[in-house]
Design a binder for these strands. Structure first.
Ligand SMILES: Nc1ccn([C@H]2C[C@H](O)[C@@H](COP(=O)(O)OP(=O)(O)OP(=O)(O)O)O2)c(=O)n1
Ligand SMILES: [Mg+2]
Length: 769
DNA sequence: GCGGATCAC
DNA sequence: TATGGTGATCCGC
């Protein structure tokens, strides 16, 4: 009899070890896959993966049928279309930008190793028995990587040390590296805590005219060429902040008398013990460590090396970087010499072509396992194959995806970084031990809604569409959504909607139980809470009672008795809503939210994310292996940004580059009923400039409903808001309720329009460029 | 507009 | 024993 093996037909391609990551070259894939297979087979998870695999194979089959049905005339047409597109693309290829992608090495793992040096020479991973966030490079040799369950990782590598994640630390490091990024490109685009795109084009222009002094930075002396070794007695602050100013302002440092060619040699010959420098750090009072000075050239390579070294000096962590004329290439390059390396593709068509020729498509951001397999069935595995098969691709994929593929094969990508975009959704989800009892399911749902409502308030957002996500114990995922008539941030209204979506699912499995392992709630169609504007309604409220609310619930269905979905009640009533006092939490907010890099040059899919898992339930393994942080937090968090700025290349107030760029409404033909109203509304308009692409006008009366142009609906809505009945209802409602804040009008016959159109807006910034 | 799928990190 | 969380986009209805 034959034993099932990973090589047999039962191997799940999408489950096999993924060696696409840095540090995973040339490992024993066969053995690893066999272990993964043995550990997984028979599980619910595995069975679901098998199901997905079959689905994918079916899709491939259909694709093959479609392809084989193509006549030669159609193929010729595809070829012609492809070639025309390629000509057009080539014509607008832009090699004038210098884009850099910076990515920290084994980020979470590196932070944990930094803070517990005993981990440095051991295979380790961050996460728990259920799931790993990432692993260090030693562990990667065993096939241990991100998104792998810890218990399987331990089978691959029995000596693996698991460390639970510390998100506060990762966020703090992220802030530090972003401060450095900002000095090279104030408009840098963070993709996650540990990586960002930068456009160095402008910096390089500046850099070429800068003095040598601006390009000298401190390096701690390393005993070997691995990581910086810290001594308990020595200062661990950022030397380029606490000491560099003193050094480069030294009288004795007469670098102007030295030629650029000999300057580095001269710097090496200096003995700083002879100079008048502080012996102790002025921030932490510890002894300052020995250092050397390094001069960086005006080239990109040196600019990026300088940036990476400054990151390492500041965080004791290494970064890798890619330099190229566009984001797509820069991303690939940053992986090329990982860890602690960099790689450049020069702005040269031939060099790009040469690079793309043998590049596996899987290396391109946006092409994942599934697309790889799909393309594989068309004999495409390298980027150059995309060109060879362009006629097929034209027919087999959508126009957008086809264009994406053609850009890839030409080595084209985004040449500009998008500004901060407003978020489009906010969600929370949790995996748990099986729940099938409806009452418990509703309770879980309520918890999630409470969590979501809190997050919405912290972000000062309201939303209109509530989505419920469920994953059964067999890993089948479903989402169900409902769009409300009003924007809301009210936990109860959210729960009401989610509850009913859940009920439908519970009821749909007749005669049996809905058995879940995960539930999630998402809010989308978001608009900002217009909290900072004085609404006429709030004046009524204030005159009616003393308490005024800032971040309380903003939805208020005060007048329309809608028989709407969100108002229906449930027999399955649960008492979870009584203990819902909003708890104030001090939250660490990242000032840069991720940005999407979407351009016509970018993947038709995926954009950006902050790392999840923050709330993931992870258990300690080897607690005893861990030791307390040796390095005082203060030293790491210490930014000293002013000091660093004064002597640096750029001025940067860009720290808080959530850049409050004012937008002007280019065509504001308003239709307000009187001049006074117009004034109110203009104020409202100014307060709603946070949206780059969309401008909403809040109702100047209730301050809650948002309107897009044209303003007919606003006018109509305001009539209702100002009606005596409405005002009466507000006052009445205030008597009845002691915890409502602003008011939301619901107009049932003319629904407040969901903003659809994008208005052309002009950023004031752009006038000052 | 909705739901499933894919992708990134 | 055990296979995450958050956000975004695209495709086909
Ligand atoms: N599926 C994933 C992938 C990543 N991360 C987290 C942990 C990583 O440390 C961090 C950065 O992701 P990277 O893809 O950049 O991976 P690393 O930085 O860990 O390794 P490297 O960049 O050296 O390949 O995001 C995660 O939680 N889940
Ligand atoms: Mg990384």
């Amino acid at each position: 009899m034959s034993k099932l093996t990973a090589q047999g037909s039962s191997l799940i391609s999408t489950m096999a070890i993924n060696d696409n990551k840095a540090g995973m070259e040339g490992l024993n894939k066969e053995k690893i896959n066999q272990i993964i297979f043995e550990a997984s087979k028979g599980s619910k998870f595995f069975e679901n993966e098998q199901k997905k695999e079959e689905q994918l194979n079916q899709k491939i089959l259909e694709q093959q049928i479609l392809i084989s049905s193509l006549s030669s005339a159609m193929l010729f047409h595809g070829l012609k279309e492809a070639d025309e597109l390629i000509e057009k693309l080539k014509a607008c290829q832009d090699l004038s930008h210098t884009i850099v992608h910076v990515d920290m090495d084994a980020f979470y793992a590196a932070v944990e190793m930094r803070d517990d040096p005993r981990l440095k020479d051991k295979p380790m991973a961050v996460g728990g028995m259920s799931m790993l966030s990432t692993s260090n490079y030693i562990a990667r040799k065993y096939g241990v990587r991100a998104a792998m369950p810890g218990f399987i990782a331990l089978k691959l590598c029995p000596n693996l040390v698991l460390v639970e994640p510390n998100f506060t630390k990762y966020t703090a490091v992220s802030q530090e590296i972003r401060e450095i990024f900002a000095q090279y490109d104030p408009n840098f685009s963070p993709m996650s805590l540990d990586e960002a795109y930068l456009d160095l084009t402008e910096h390089l222009i500046y850099r070429r005219g800068s003095s040598n002094l601006c390009r000298i930075f401190l390096l701690r002396l390393k005993t070997d060429n691995s990581s910086i070794v810290v001594n308990d007695l020595e200062c661990t602050c950022n030397l380029n902040a606490v000491l560099r100013p003193s050094v480069i302002n030294l009288e004795e440092l007469k670098i102007n008398s030295v030629s650029s060619e000999n300057l580095q040699e001269y710097l090496n010959s200096l003995d700083f013990s002879n100079f008048n420098l502080p012996k102790d750090c002025q921030v932490c009072n510890k002894k300052l460590p020995p250092f050397s000075l390094k001069l960086y050239d005006t080239t990109v390579e040196d600019a990026v090396l300088e940036m990476r070294n400054r990151i390492e000096q500041r965080t004791f962590l290494t970064a890798s970087a890619g330099i190229a004329p566009n984001t797509m290439l820069a991303k690939v390059c940053s992986d090329r010499n990982k860890p602690n390396g960099q790689f450049q593709i020069h702005p040269d068509v031939q060099e790009i072509e040469e690079f793309m020729k043998n590049l596996p498509i899987r290396k391109i951001s946006g092409i994942g396992k599934v697309t790889e397999k799909l393309l594989g069935s068309l004999n495409i595995s390298l980027c150059s194959d995309l060109y060879k098969q362009r006629a097929l691709l034209y027919h087999a994929f959508s126009s957008l995806t086809f264009q994406y593929f053609m850009k890839i094969t030409l080595g084209m990508g985004s040449t500009s970084l998008e500004k901060d975009e407003e978020r489009k959704s906010l969600s929370t989800e949790r995996t748990f031990a099986e729940i099938s009892d409806p009452a418990q399911l509703y309770e879980k749902c309520a918890e999630l809604c409470q969590h979501l409502a809190k997050d919405l308030n912290e972000e000062q957002l309201m939303g209109k569409t509530v989505s419920l996500k469920i994953k059964t114990i067999s890993f089948e995922i479903k989402t169900r959504s409902h769009t409300l008539q009003c924007y809301t941030n009210d936990e109860k209204i959210i729960f009401n909607a989610a509850k009913q979506l859940l009920k439908v699912e519970i009821d749909s499995v007749k005669q049996s139980l809905l058995r879940l392992r995960l539930m999630g709630v998402r809010m989308s169609k978001l608009v900002p809470q217009a909290s900072n504007q004085v609404s006429i309604v709030s004046l009524f409220h204030q005159s009616n009672r003393l308490t005024s609310t800032a971040s309380r619930t903003n939805t208020h269905n005060f007048n329309i008795q809608k028989t709407d979905f969100d108002e229906k009640d449930f027999s399955t009533s649960i008492n979870i809503l009584e203990a819902n006092d909003p708890v104030l939490e001090s939250t660490m907010t990242t000032r840069h939210s991720q940005k999407s890099l979407f351009q016509k040059t970018q993947s038709p899919q995926k954009k950006s994310i902050e790392s999840g898992m923050k709330n993931s339930i992870m258990k300690f393994v080897s607690k005893s292996e861990r030791c307390s942080d040796k390095i005082a937090n203060n030293c790491y968090v210490e930014s000293n940004i002013k000091v660093e700025n004064n002597n640096n290349l750029r001025n940067l107030d860009c720290e808080n580059s959530s850049s409050t760029s004012l937008k002007l409404q280019s065509n504001s033909k308003s239709n307000f009923s009187n001049a006074a109203m117009q004034n109110v509304s203009q104020a409202t308009l100014i307060s709603s400039v946070e949206s780059k692409q969309k401008t909403f006008i809040s109702c100047p009366v209730c301050g809650q409903q948002k309107f897009d142009w044209p303003l007919d609906q606003l006018n109509q809505h305001m009539d209702l808001c100002l009606s005596r009945k409405t005002i009466k209802t507000i006052l009445q409602d205030d008597k009845n309720s002691n915890k409502r804040g602003a008011v939301q009008v619901e107009n049932d016959d003319s629904l407040p329009s969901v903003p659809k159109r994008k208005k052309t807006q002009i950023a004031v910034d752009s006038y000052f460029k």
